[in-house]
Computed example of a mutant assay.
Amino acid sequence: MLQIANVSKDMGEFFLDNVSLEIQDGEYLVIIGPTGAGKTILLETVAGIYESDSGEIYLDGREITDAAPRDRNICMVYQDYMLFPHLTVEENIGFGLKSKKVPAGEIREAVMKYATMLNIAHLLHRYPGTLSGGEQQRAAIARAMVMSPRALLLDEPLSALDAKTRELLRRELKSLHAITKTTVIHITHNFEEVFDLADRVAIMNQGRIVQVGKPEEIFRKPKDRFVADFVGATNVFKGVSTVTDGLAVVTVDGLEIRAHPAEEGDVYVSVRPEDILISTEPLASPVRNAFPGTIRDVLHVGAVVRLTVDAGTEFIVALTRQGFEETGLDVGDGVYIAFKATAAHVFPGGNA
Score class of each variant (00 low, 15 high):
Gly328Asp: 04
Glu27Pro: 05
Pro273Phe: 10
Ser175Pro: 00
Leu255Thr: 05
Ala262Val: 04
Val309Ile: 08
Leu2Glu: 00
Asn289Val: 08
Phe84Gly: 01
Leu21His: 00
Met147Gln: 15
Val184Thr: 13
Asp245Lys: 10
Ile316Asp: 09
Met147Thr: 13
Arg200Met: 07
Gly36Asp: 06
Val227Lys: 01
Ala68Phe: 03
Ser270Glu: 12
Pro85Thr: 05
Arg170Gly: 07
Asp10His: 14
Ala198Lys: 01
Asn119Gln: 15
Arg171Trp: 04
Ile41Trp: 09
Val301Glu: 14
Ala303Tyr: 09
Leu118Phe: 06
Gly232Trp: 12
Lys238Arg: 15
Asp266Lys: 13
Tyr50Trp: 14
Phe324Leu: 08
Asn6Met: 07
Ile64Ser: 04
Ala344Gln: 04
Lys98Ala: 11
Arg225His: 14
Ser175Ile: 11
Ile120Ser: 00
Gly349Asn: 12
Tyr78His: 13
Asp266Val: 01
Leu277Gln: 08
Pro261Ala: 09
Thr280Glu: 11
Val210Arg: 09
Lys174Leu: 12
Arg72Glu: 10
Ala142Asp: 13
His260Asn: 09
Ala163Ile: 14
Ala343Trp: 00
Thr308Asn: 12
Leu255Phe: 03
Asp310Phe: 04
Glu314Gly: 03
Lys9Gln: 07
Asp275Tyr: 02
Arg166Tyr: 08
Glu263Gly: 01
Asp333Asn: 15
Leu158His: 09
Ile4Glu: 04
Val89Cys: 01
Ile218Cys: 05
Asn73Ala: 02
Gly207Ile: 08
Leu158Asn: 07
Ile209Asn: 02
Ile257Thr: 06
Phe347Pro: 01
Glu193Arg: 12
Ala151Ser: 01
Val111Asp: 04
Glu27Met: 03
